[in-house]
């Protein structure tokens, strides 16, 4: 059994059966009063961040979570199949579970998959991925509409706003944390 002295950034604990990860924490103690640990914790199933105050010394249940690096293999119906790069074990995650991360999956992309009690609950793609533009309107010099960007669709289906000079067939660097265009990649 863990207790509040184990709390640090990234510590994972179980609250009412749900795994939470510590985002931030602070020891607080009135000079003549009870000590507490104020925390900001992230629900690892939903991503929601909440504040929670623990009494100093309170027992905590450590969450049985593990992060594994896996390689994306192929789609299968409404799901995507990944392979553990160490054990070659394959697991499948539904598109719903993957959310927007489905747009960052190319053959062989390595992602970190968070397992809770052996079941996948979250995916962290590489911070940057490179995707080909499959469709975008040609951008014209001297565009008078005042727009400096235009929509583009990437090979994975990701919609991204790009500068006017980007053409179909270009390769883009995309930040997976924000879903934003970073730059055009040469070659």
């Amino acid at each position: 059994m863990a207790d509040t002295s184990d709390i640090k950034k990234g510590f994972k604990m179980l609250i009412d059966g749900v795994p939470f990860a510590v985002v931030d924490h602070q020891f607080v103690k009135p000079g003549k009063g009870q000590a507490f640990i104020r925390t900001r914790i992230k629900n690892m199933m939903t991503g929601a961040v909440i504040d929670r105050t623990f009494k100093s010394g309170e027992k905590l249940e450590k969450a049985d979570t593990e992060e594994r690096t896996m390689q994306y293999l192929y789609p299968e119906g409404d799901a995507r199949v990944f392979m553990d790069t160490q054990s070659y074990e394959q697991i499948s995650l539904s598109n719903e579970q993957l959310g927007d991360n489905v747009y960052y999956l190319l053959d062989g992309t390595e992602v970190d998959i968070m397992l809770f009690e052996g079941r996948p609950i979250g995916v962290t793609p590489p911070t940057f991925v490179e995707l080909l533009v499959s469709e975008t309107e040609p951008g014209f010099k001297g565009d008078s509409s005042g727009n400096t960007t235009k929509p583009a669709t990437c090979e994975t289906g990701l919609q991204v706003n790009v500068p006017l000079f980007v053409n179909t067939g270009d390769k883009l660097k995309v930040d997976t944390r924000t879903g934003d265009y970073v730059e055009r990649v040469k070659g």
């Binding site: 009135p30 009063g33 009870q34 104020r38 105050t53």
Partner: peptide
Amino acid sequence: DEEQFFRVWVE
């Protein structure tokens, strides 16, 4: 409830 007092106080 002293613990509750301090919880409200610090939060």
